[in-house]
Simulated assay, not measured.
Amino acid sequence: MRGIQTNDDGSIVVEGAERSLTYTPRLITLDDGTTIAHESQGGELSSVWALDLGGDWFVEVAHLGDGPVGGELVMTVTHIGLDETLRHVAIGDLWAADLPSDVPPSWPVAVDLALGLMEGQVHILGGDITKDDVETLHQRLLGALHG
C-alpha cells in the first residue's frame, strides 16, 4: 500500500518504501514496535521528532502544546512526487467539534501553531475538516478562554 490510509478506529497509517508508522493523537508506533509519545504521556518526546520513511515520504511529529487531554501530537507528512509535493497534516485531538466547559490556556496556542502548518496546499487528515474549520475552532477556543 505505499501512502496514507485512515483506519476505522481513527488511526492513520503512513507507509514509505522502507518504513511505516501508525499515528494516533498521543502515540506514534513504528513498524519495528518503537513508540513515540510526549513526556506527559510517558514518552520521551519533548517537542519534535522526524523520520524519512523512504520513497520520498517524510514525517514530522510535534507537540505544539496541550489540548483538551494533554500530550496531543500533530503529524505532518510530506510526499515528494514526480509532478508535485503533497503535504498532509493530522491534528488529532487538538480538533474538537464541541468544546468542554474548561478550556486549558495552552489549547488555543497549540491550535494556532497547527494552523501555521496548514499554509499552502495541504490536506488535513483524520476527519472531514478544513483549514476554515480549524480557524473557527481557534476563535471559539479564544472566546471560551477570554470570554
Rank of each mutant, 00 (worst) to 15 (best):
M1W: 11
I4A: 02
I4L: 04
T6R: 01
D8K: 14
D8V: 11
S11F: 07
S11M: 06
V13E: 13
A17N: 08
E18H: 15
R19A: 12
R19F: 13
L21S: 08
T22V: 12
P25W: 01
P25E: 02
L27S: 09
I28T: 05
I28A: 02
T29M: 13
T29H: 08
L30N: 00
D32C: 04
D32K: 02
T35S: 09
A37P: 08
A37I: 08
H38F: 09
E39L: 10
G43P: 10
L45K: 04
V48E: 14
W49H: 02
W49Q: 01
A50H: 12
L53E: 03
L53S: 03
L53C: 03
L53Y: 04
L53P: 01
G54Q: 02
G54F: 03
W57L: 00
W57A: 00
W57T: 01
F58W: 04
F58E: 04
V61F: 03
A62H: 11
G65L: 01
G65M: 01
D66P: 07
D66E: 08
G67P: 06
P68S: 11
P68T: 09
V69E: 09
E72A: 04
L73W: 10
L73C: 06
M75K: 00
T76Y: 07
V77G: 04
T78R: 15
H79R: 07
G81A: 07
L82P: 12
D83I: 08
T85E: 14
L86D: 11
R87T: 14
R87H: 13
H88Y: 15
H88E: 08
A90C: 03
A90T: 05
I91M: 01
I91C: 00
G92D: 00
L94R: 04
L94S: 05
W95Y: 14
A97I: 09
L99P: 04
L99A: 07
L99E: 08
S101V: 11
D102A: 11
D102P: 05
V103F: 10
P105K: 13
P105S: 14
W107I: 13
P108L: 01
A110K: 11
A110Q: 13
D112Q: 15
L113P: 10
G116W: 12
L117T: 10
E119H: 15
G120Q: 13
Q121L: 10
V122Q: 05
V122P: 03
I124M: 02
G126H: 01
G127L: 02
G127V: 03
D128N: 06
T130P: 00
T130I: 02
D132H: 08
D133G: 01
D133K: 00
V134M: 04
E135A: 15
E135P: 09
E135T: 14
T136E: 14
L137V: 11
Q139V: 13
R140S: 10
R140K: 15
R140T: 10
R140P: 05
L141K: 03
L141R: 02
G143M: 09
L145F: 11
L145R: 12
H146M: 12
G147Y: 08
